[in-house]
Design a protein around this nucleic acid. Structure first.
Length: 314
RNA sequence: AGACUCCGUUCAGGGC
């Protein structure tokens, strides 16, 4: 039971919800801890209804950890009121619960409420600091973000990454570059943040240069190059990049396919686009999301395949 | 054994 619970949590972290669920259902007996692990797996993969079912119907008892898990499930799915409901009913407000609630308000655009929770917290850990930092960073309140950053007792990769990407997304590539070279960690994460920033502001040359210099490339790095070509209207190059990526044994994810489908759409390559769409499902086992259908729809509509586009909507 | 924080993709339309 103990090792299976660990594996359920691991599968959840890696987005393998089905595997987690299979393990969970095959358990001869379940306890609070394994149920919480499953709850978190649902939450991390956007299955709010399943999480709610498990929490309300199957579970016989709850502790502060399972409550926190459900709280963040609500928080991540935009159910602010449900999250607040759990929060208000908790007897002991654990650090984790406060952090989750803080983030929920921040993601809902209520920075003041987030700030209030932060200020009222008796003790804070690095997660709390990072949460309020990224709340400001994501709204591109750079000044506030810098103040928080400078007040923090310590920084980890997440803190650096937040401030770096906010600076870059704000368009201050010089400042971003300055931060980047000052980083105490030169990890593939920081490289990916930087290369992505370059791609977002449309610096194709910088993007490819960084890509060539990287020692460890993953899907994010490849996605940045794809994005940069896409921004420059270079659909063919984008598709070439995508094919090279597969040759390099990097597994494309759903976002790569969004870009590929859009590239096909812009280049008017309907047939090719269909092939990629099929391949996405058949070869990579990716369930098409609404977003993917929108891309296909866009492609069909732009190229004048109106009746097929209409069928797709149905 | 389980919970909390960061990062990648965007189409169309409307307003200024």
């Amino acid at each position: 039971l103990v090792s299976t619970t660990t594996m359920i949590a691991e599968f959840g972290n890696y987005g393998k919800l089905e595997e987690a669920q299979n393990l969970f259902e095959a358990l001869p007996e379940q306890n609070l801890v394994s149920e919480t692990a499953m709850l978190a797996a649902y939450s991390q993969n956007g299955s709010l209804e399943q999480a709610r079912n498990l929490f309300e119907r199957s579970m016989q008892q709850w502790d502060h950890i399972s409550l926190s898990a459900m709280l963040s499930a609500y928080a991540h799915n935009g159910c602010l009121e449900d999250a607040q409901g759990i929060f208000d009913r908790m007897e002991h407000l654990s650090l984790t619960a406060c952090n989750a609630m803080l983030t929920a308000h921040a993601q809902n655009g209520n920075l003041e409420r987030a700030r209030q929770i932060f200020d009222e917290m008796g003790s804070k850990n690095l997660v709390s600091w990072n949460a309020i930092l990224s709340a400001y960073a994501q709204c591109l309140y750079l000044d506030e973000a810098r103040v928080v950053f400078d007040s923090m007792p310590e920084h980890d990769m997440i803190s650096w990454n937040s401030i770096l990407s906010a600076t870059a997304q704000h368009g201050n590539m010089h400042d971003a570059e300055y931060l980047f070279v000052k980083l105490p960690y030169q990890t593939s994460l920081s490289w990916n943040t930087m290369i992505t920033a370059n791609a977002q502001v449309g610096h194709l040359l910088e993007t490819t240069k960084m890509f060539d210099e990287m020692w460890e490339r993953n899907v994010l790095s490849w996605t940045a190059v794809l994005t940069a070509h896409f921004h420059h209207g270079q659909s063919d190059e984008a598709l070439l990049v995508f094919d090279s990526m597969k040759l390099d044994d990097v597994i494309p994810d759903e976002i790569c396919f969004v870009l590929v489908l859009l590239a096909c759409s812009h280049a008017g390559k309907v047939f090719l686009g269909r092939c990629y769409f099929q391949s996405m499902m058949a070869d990579f086992g990716i369930q098409p999301s609404k977003q993917h259908y929108c891309c296909v729809l866009d492609m069909l509509a732009r190229s004048g395949h109106l009746s097929e586009a209409r069928d797709l909507i149905k």
